[in-house]
């Protein structure tokens, strides 16, 4: 199929933002310089209509990342072919620079929980999720990125550290890693582990994108709400990560209590400054 949109790749030296409905008008009017725009794939699964038309217009000016929340890669349920077909249709229409999914599960027996639930980190779960990632990549005809999720519970049956599990999925399937640093921080804080273990376990060459977001501190632990500014600890982790990885396309996610566009752009600007330092003359060449 001939390309319908100009070829665009994210600028690894800049941050992108999540494209959210309240910002459509302001973003279209101002067209700020951004590495890319990321959307939740499912929000554009409609057969037609205004949301898709908006996304097509933005795609003319920006690289787009399709970030899925519903494919349920880790479910024991059969892979949801209907959902995958919708994703493939959207990808054919939008020609995204990046396609990502979560390393999690969200359906049981065809019933959908609408939540990114953690996997037990076992050999069996690893074999299962790798087969599914391979199936999805085969169907879409492209490499996908898989994201480490926030997990409020850990399973007694888990035998593999999370970082090794994520790294092994990438190694076996050739998929990339979407490194979510807020999730890494939330998990470390909730389970008394070190977020840097996750960073160290993952092959730098496999990281295709970084996510930054805010969380909420509750009496029961940190909750990954995407409804607050990026925390100081996550900014520190980000600076360390780009020091190790070099510049990587980075997204500032904000999904609940969505602020004015300028607030989001300021967060992206802060990420830009850190990415710029990673590209600067001080960076060690490996």
């Amino acid at each position: 199929m001939p390309a319908r949109h100009p070829a665009r790749a994210p600028d690894p030296g800049r941050a992108g933002i999540g494209l959210r409905t309240p910002h459509f008008e302001a973003l279209a009017a101002r067209r700020p310089a951004l590495s890319f725009l990321e959307v939740h794939s499912e929000n554009y699964f409609a057969d037609g209509g205004p949301a898709l038309a908006w996304l097509e217009r933005f795609r003319a000016d920006y690289a787009v990342s399709l970030h899925g929340v519903g494919l349920s890669l880790g479910s024991a349920d059969p892979l949801d072919r209907r959902h995958l077909a919708r994703l493939a249709r959207l990808a054919a229409r939008i020609e995204p620079a990046l396609v990502s999914e979560h390393l999690c599960w969200s359906s049981v027996g065809g019933t959908h929980l609408g939540e990114l639930l953690p996997l037990p980190y076992t050999q069996e779960a690893l074999d299962h999720v790798c087969a599914r990632v391979a199936e999805v990549q085969e169907c879409l005809g492209r490499r996908i990125l898989v994201e480490n999720v926030a997990a409020y519970v850990r399973f007694a049956s888990s035998t593999i550290p999370e970082g090794e599990f994520v790294a092994e999925v990438a190694r076996r399937t050739g998929c990339g890693v979407l490194l979510d640093l807020n999730n890494a921080w939330v998990n470390a804080a909730n389970h008394g582990t070190d977020a840097r273990d996750l960073l160290r376990a993952i092959d730098p060459a496999s990281v295709g994108e970084i996510h930054l977001a805010g969380h909420e501190v509750t009496p029961d632990g940190l909750v990954d709400t995407h409804g607050a500014p990026v925390s100081p600890e996550v900014w520190t982790l980000f600076a360390e990560a780009v020091g190790r990885l070099g510049p990587v396309p980075t997204l500032v996610e904000w999904d609940t209590d969505i602020p004015a566009l300028d607030v989001l752009l300021a967060e992206a600007g802060r990420a830009d400054a850190i990415l710029a330092r990673a590209q600067g003359p001080g960076r060690a060449v490996a």
């Binding site: 939540e115 409020y152 389970h191």
Partner: peptide, 20 residues
């Protein structure tokens, strides 16, 4: 089925329950 202290694990499960 969960690791860690039981009372905390139950409260953490409740985070998912509320989210669903």
């Amino acid at each position: 089925r969960l690791a860690g202290e039981r009372a905390l694990a139950l409260r953490r499960l409740a985070i998912y329950r509320r989210a669903v």
